[in-house]
Write a protein that binds this DNA or RNA. Structure first.
Lengths: 230, 230
DNA sequence: ACCCCACCTTAAGAAAGCCTTAAGGATTCG
DNA sequence: CGAATCCTTAAGGCTTTCTTAAGGTGGGGT
């Protein structure tokens, strides 16, 4: 499996230099020039490791790392011109997995990248992000059959779970009641009753703060339901 | 849960210095003065992280790290007087998770220890010591075919043991009755009888304080069973 | 502003799944 | 070969979940 690495630094030369070394080792490289760009990129692509400079305009590396940690569970290597011990310690305590100071030997960075990825993937199928769907603060972990909202676990019944899983797995896409029924119940003869609506209501009671104005599970008038894609 | 950290260095002063800082942060510290001692120690105790010096008599740090990697899946931080880039790269490629050069700031080492443990435990809280699985106060030692609850040994029958081992090894993951049946009995033709349910009941009688409200072996309605991941 | 239709809400009966118990058959071990 | 342990089966009770139906709410076209 090809690994996607996101390099985030406002210095284009450094980004390109790192890019060359990483690509040479068979990694896919994505680049961003500030923290916001990095986060945007991560929301649309699956990234396996981030190399993040600390000093950047728009959103600095520390804040970006904190944001990344909230949503994703991937290694972050911090890059910085500051070689002060206190900065290193701060960076590591912020949630970085490693800290490299400029100027650095590209081969050392490469070795550290591999080291992080080795651990990440060696922990096996169990950890694979496969089977985990999320949208905003909502996550659906399929192997644990567990749903969390802002980190808080929520207990759903089997049917409720299946519906929410379908919608979260395809966040943003709208499903008609008929489609939901067929997917979840595996049957064609669609029952005309409002069964699905009742389940939707129950799910909302469990995952939404305000049932009247749902943040995640939204209705699309005349068409069906969807989970908002963040 | 208290973390056990093994510090391995032939320089007693360094070991003691590190020990003070680690203990101050609430870690248990074990010490060894060469690679062989470290390996012996790990075979009898559950160790969560190793800090390993490279230059040592009897068995050097690189060979010891390789040996550790063969059997255990825990983070290793290498320690060395060599600050050459090539040594760092070599160490990291050998399987070390991090590389710190002497002299070092103890606080930086501490931050790196925490960083490694954070990642390690956030990935599912499963401490993998060859053949020993645990979740909360529940431990399944596969070498000894022994199960303990809060240190108290529990006697299970073979089938009960296999079921609990499967669930504890994959703590947090939900298994359907069919999956349990296939895994434990190695057969496809799934018996429709409630055999599994009865075994579950028996296991609960042995490991749970209150059978009505199980702490470890939980049911996930409409889906199956799991051992809670702590 | 009105009305229709789509969606929402509620509660209660029906269905499904889990738990418990006990007894007979299989297996192991002395 | 006999006894003890372990496994399986089956039936009934219990809890949770699903479905249905009836009535309420509110968007949006006319």
């Amino acid at each position: 499996m090809k690994m996607n690495i996101l390099v985030c630094d406002d210095d284009k030369e450094i980004v390109e230099a790192i890019e060359i070394y990483l690509k040479n080792e068979g990694f896919n490289v994505l680049s961003a020039f500030n923290g916001r760009e990095a986060l945007d990129m991560m929301s649309s692509t699956s990234v396996h490791l981030v190399i993040m400079d600390i000093m950047m305009p728009v959103m600095d590396g520390v804040r970006a790392t904190l944001k990344i940690r909230e949503k994703y569970n991937i290694p972050v290597i911090m890059l910085s011109a500051k070689s002060e011990d206190t900065d290193k310690i701060l960076g590591l305590n912020m949630g970085a997995d490693d800290y490299v100071t400029k100027p650095f030997n590209p081969l050392e960075l490469l070795a550290r990248v591999k080291s992080q990825l080795r651990r990440y993937t060696s922990l096996g199928s169990q950890v694979r992000v496969e089977g985990v769907f999320q949208s905003g603060g909502l996550t659906v972990n399929d192997c644990r059959k567990e749903v969390t909202v802002d980190g808080e676990a929520v207990k759903l019944t089997p049917v409720e779970y299946k519906i929410l899983r379908l919608l979260t797995e395809n966040a943003g896409r709208v499903f008609s009641i008929e489609q939901i029924y067929e997917q979840v119940w595996n049957e064609q003869p669609f029952s005309p009753a409002n069964t699905v609506a009742v389940h939707i209501r129950h799910i909302r009671e469990k995952i939404e703060i305000n049932t009247k104005e749902p943040k995640y599970l939204k209705v699309v008038w005349g068409i069906g339901y969807k989970v908002e894609a963040f």
